[in-house]
Write a protein that binds this DNA or RNA. Structure first.
Lengths: 136, 136
DNA sequence: CCGTATCCTTGCGGATACTG
DNA sequence: CAGTATCCGCAAGGATACGG
C-alpha cells in the first residue's frame, strides 16, 4: 500500500471529492494551463510582464494577465509596479508562492524523471490497442 | 543554473515552457478536473467503476470513462475486467501510478495545510480592491 | 510598456439514450 | 454492471484592438 501514513492515508485530501472546496480554488489555478509555467519561471526570480510573455510559448496577453491576477489574488505572486512612464511591472513569488512551488516542483521533477516510462506506457498501450483490432 | 533535480531547483522542469512536451501529456491529465479525485481515491486501493462514480461527487459517466482511459493509457491506472456477466471491472494504481501519487499527494497536502492562508490572502486582496474603488 | 475590453472559436463537460 | 455514442450548452481561451 501507500508508503504514507497507514490509516488515514487519504487524510487531508478528503475534501477534494466535494465539488467545491478551498483547495480547489487554488488547485484550479495551479493546474490551469498557464499557472504552472508562470510559477516555475518565477522560481528563478522576479520577471517583468513582457519577459513572461516571451518566455512562455503560446500564451496570449489575455491569458497571462488573467493567470497573473489569479495568482496575485491567491497570494502566490506579488506584483510590484512603478507608477511612472514607461511603466515597469515586475512579478515575483511570495513566501506562500515559494511554499507551493516546492511540492509543485517535486511533482514536475517526478514527471520529468519518469517521462520515459510514461511515454513508453502510452506507446505500449497504443500498440496493444491496434493489434487488438487486427486479432478478430 | 543548476540542472540538478529534487527539491528546490527548477532543473528538469525547463521543458514545460514548450507548448508540447511529454510532461504536459500527463500533467494535463493530472491537472484535469477529475484526474486528481480518481487517483486520490485509488490510493486507498482498487475500486470498481460504479464505486468511483458514487464516490466522486458530480462526475458523469462520460468524464469518468474518459479520465480512466486516459490514466490507463498513461500507465498510471490498471484496468482489470472479468469477461463474464455481470461484468466486474476494477481499477487500481500501477507502480507508476503510486509513484506519481506521492508527489501529487504532497502537493495536495500542502494545499490543505495552507488553505487558510490562501483564502485569507484572497479575502485581503478582495478587500483592498473594494476599498481602492472607494478612495477616489 | 502594461495591460483591459471585445469578439469569436474551440472543445470541455453534462445529460441522455443506447449496447454488450 | 460497465461502458459508448450523441447532442448541446457554456465557458475557457486565442486574436485583435484599444486605453493608461
Amino acid at each position: 500500500m501507500a508508503p504514507r501514513s497507514g490509516k488515514g492515508t487519504l487524510g487531508a485530501a478528503a475534501e477534494i471529492f466535494q465539488r467545491i472546496c478551498p483547495g480547489r480554488l487554488v488547485l484550479d489555478h495551479v493546474s490551469g494551463r498557464w499557472g504552472v509555467p508562470v510559477m516555475v519561471l518565477l522560481r528563478q526570480g522576479p520577471a517583468r510582464y513582457f519577459e513572461l510573455r516571451e518566455a512562455i510559448d503560446g500564451v496570449s496577453e489575455k491569458m497571462l494577465s488573467q493567470t497573473l491576477r489569479a495568482l496575485v489574488r491567491d497570494g502566490i505572486v506579488a506584483r510590484r509596479a512603478t507608477s511612472s512612464i514607461p511603466p515597469r511591472v515586475t512579478y515575483e513569488l511570495t513566501e506562500l508562492g515559494r511554499g507551493v512551488a516546492g511540492p509543485l516542483g517535486d511533482l514536475l521533477a517526478w514527471l520529468s524523471e519518469h517521462q520515459d516510462e510514461l511515454v513508453a506506457a502510452q506507446r505500449a498501450h497504443d500498440e496493444l490497442e491496434s493489434s487488438a483490432s487486427s486479432v478478430a
